[in-house]
Simulated scan of single mutants.
Amino acid sequence: MLIGNCQFDEVKGTLTGSNDIWNLPRAELQVLRLLVRHRGTVVCKQVLRQGQGEGAVLSESSVARAVFILRSHLGPQFEYLIETVKGQGYLLLPQPEQFRSQGSPPNSLCLYTALILGIAIAATVGIWSLHRLFFVSHTVTQVSDSPLYSSQVMTGSGKSIGVSLFTKSKTNSSQLLQQAEQLKLALGSCIEPPWEQVYMSLSHDGQVLNITVRGNRHGQPEVRNLKISDSREPREFINPVWLQQEGICE
């Protein structure tokens, strides 16, 4: 299955780009498998968490992080193919050349959530899935689902927000840490932001900063995906102008 310029092999659990092969950990594999099988259809977050009953239910943060990492694999040109549908879930768009000017809106898999959940709960934990979770290939690049760095930032009201950084290149780690400190300073000045968790990553060329913020607004889960591009030297992704435009505290 072609996704952007990457080839997804569901059987092997790999995503192959122009220069990399990623052996997907369980969360990324589960999320991408469901999005691919229902391409063009909105897949509920609960369905993505439950999967096909092959393992323990994923947390919401694990699903958000999996989407975040999958987008980073697709790269700046094709990360939009995984679209966030506010209040529902995620949608894998068709390949760019397959877009048409007219067409009916995608159906929602949410209507079938109860049936899927019933099947998933009845299913037993698959030995194959556990094997894929812990297997590390010596012939492909293994991307760990463990963050490079995790910390907490305290807001003006005393609320704690988690910040996790992910990177595939050690050369980007110092720049990513620097940008994280800038964002933490901004979040620390917020009074009552809805966010509970922040995920950040930097593209391999260091020109695109990806930020995903997850939280709860009026009793409903909310996720925002932000992208900042800067090809200048030195790069200044997070600055007062960007913070005001995005309303990071709101």
Rank of each mutant, 00 (worst) to 15 (best):
L176A: 11
G126W: 14
S137G: 11
Q182K: 15
L117R: 11
Q102I: 00
Q98K: 06
V63L: 01
V36K: 08
V143W: 11
V140D: 14
L177I: 01
V43F: 13
L209F: 10
I127C: 12
S62H: 13
I127H: 13
E79C: 14
I69P: 12
S189D: 09
V153H: 08
R37W: 01
V57C: 07
Q88Y: 14
R214H: 11
C6R: 08
T171H: 14
F135A: 08
R37M: 05
E233H: 13
P96C: 07
N5C: 05
K168H: 11
H131T: 08
G40F: 05
T84K: 03
V42S: 11
A27V: 03
P105D: 02
S59M: 06
V11W: 11
K170M: 15
E250R: 13
V36T: 08
V143K: 07
T16Q: 07
L130E: 10
R232P: 00
T141Q: 15
L176E: 10
K227R: 13
S72C: 10
L183P: 02
V140H: 14
R65L: 04
E233P: 05
Q245M: 00
K86V: 13
H138K: 09
E236C: 13
V213C: 07
E233G: 03
T155Q: 12
F8G: 00
I228F: 14
Q142T: 10
W22D: 05
F135N: 04
Q142V: 07
G55K: 11
Q52S: 02
G188T: 06
L15F: 09
S18N: 04
G215Y: 10
E181C: 06
G219D: 04
R37H: 11
F68C: 07
V125S: 12
L48Y: 02
M154K: 15
I211P: 10
S108M: 10
E250W: 08
L35P: 02
I116K: 03
L133R: 15
P194K: 07
S150H: 12
C44E: 03
L92S: 01
E97Q: 09
S108K: 09
Q220V: 01
A27Y: 09
A122I: 05
V208N: 07
H38G: 05
Q88L: 14
R71K: 15
K168I: 00
L177N: 15
R235G: 12
T171F: 13
A186G: 05
I82T: 05
R65T: 00
P106A: 12
E246S: 05
K12T: 02
Y112Q: 03
V36I: 10
Q179K: 09
S160K: 15
A66P: 14
L133W: 15
L92R: 00
A66W: 09
V47A: 09
F237Y: 04
V67K: 01
S189P: 06
G162E: 04
S229H: 04
Y90M: 06
D230F: 05
S72M: 00
I191M: 08
Y80E: 02
G206D: 00
P147T: 09
I238V: 07
E181P: 10
S189T: 02
R235W: 03
E83L: 03
C190F: 07
L109E: 04
I69A: 15
S151P: 06
V43T: 14
